[in-house]
């Protein structure tokens, strides 16, 4: 694909003031592990980036350890994106933090106006302790609802500050509000980068061994599935994104009946399929859930159903 700039995946991070958007961004920066993250924030505000991560700072750009960077976009998102697009070595993945009353879907729509950028997913961070109260507030409830409606993944942050009753009540309310999105609980927004951004999964495809569980963790689990025969990629993606499987992310390459290989990706309820840039002999997908165990039998069943 020489000469053609690679598309740059963008994750929009929304949520009301104080929910933990900045905490999440710092967590991801801290665990970027060689991935060059770009961060666009609405304003530089009070410490958008943890001080120990900052290498240098001027009025417009904060340089961050590990080749990451942070800029503010203020009232002009398009200009900020264009500036990023012009960089000699743009970041591998871009995070855009919305303002506290910003609507993540509006940001996502604008990002798509510049061909280089593709929306990877929309994550909305919510404060478990105050979400129900905000959802009932005369002034901001419809803003909160609009933000949640836009989410592929909702992070219920500060889960440790609440009791089980509040958490389950919040989850019930959320299910009514945004039925398709995936809901992850967290403390200090500590969700693994691979789960949220789907990065760092590529080496998994090079493993010698075939299908099986590859990673188990108390809060999430990943599994690889072999896809041998041709499948209908769109149908498979749509199934994998369904609420029933409750997968946070899937990523893979699958052969279709036209003899070509397709890249398949899901982020919460969002799915996409596009022709794969490279050709491989066999198809494989990685599935990640935050509610282990992965229902391997069911996924295998889906794969054969769309074959």
């Amino acid at each position: 694909m020489a000469g053609e700039p690679q598309s740059l995946p963008v994750t929009v991070i929304g949520g009301y003031l104080g929910a933990g958007k900045t905490t999440l961004i710092n967590h991801l920066l801290r665990h970027a592990d060689g991935l060059r993250l770009g961060v666009l924030v609405n304003d530089f505000g009070e410490l958008p980036i943890d001080a120990d991560l900052i290498e240098s700072q001027d009025d417009n750009v904060i340089s961050i350890t590990g080749g990451c960077m942070c800029c503010s976009y203020g009232s002009d998102l398009i200009a900020a994106l264009r500036d990023l697009d012009q960089l000699p070595s743009p970041p591998d993945h871009l995070l855009i933090e919305t303002s506290g009353v910003g609507l993540p879907d509006a940001i996502a729509q604008s990002v798509r106006l510049i061909p280089r950028f593709t929306i990877d997913g929309v994550i909305v961070v919510a404060d478990t302790e105050t979400l129900l109260k905000q959802g009932a507030d005369t002034y901001i409830k419809d803003t909160i609802e609009r933000q949640l409606h836009a989410a592929d993944i909702v992070i219920l942050n500060k889960a440790d500050l609440t009791d089980e009753e509040t958490r389950s009540e919040t989850r019930r309310w959320l299910t009514g509000m945004a039925p398709d999105c995936r809901v992850l609980e967290s403390v200090n927004a500590e969700i693994p980068l691979s789960v949220l951004l789907g990065r760092g999964l590529d080496p998994l495809f090079d493993r010698e061994h075939g299908a099986g569980h590859i990673h188990e963790h108390a809060t999430h689990e990943a599994a690889i599935f072999q896809v041998d025969g041709p499948v209908a990629p769109e149908a498979l993606a749509e199934h994998l994104a369904s609420r029933e499987l409750n997968l946070v992310r899937t990523k893979g390459f699958v052969p279709a009946s036209d003899g070509r290989l397709y890249t398949l990706q899901t982020v919460g309820r969002r799915w996409s399929v596009s022709p794969a840039p490279m050709q491989k002999a066999e198809g494989r997908i990685v599935c990640i859930t935050h509610t282990p165990p992965i229902d391997a039998e069911r996924i295998a069943g889906i794969i054969s159903a769309v074959s």
Binding site: G18, G100, L103, Y139, I140, D142
Partner: peptide
């Protein structure tokens, strides 16, 4: 038409 937009949060 649906209600409009807040340009600042009540907290701000």
């Amino acid at each position: 038409a649906p209600n409009g937009l807040w340009y600042a949060t009540p907290e701000q």
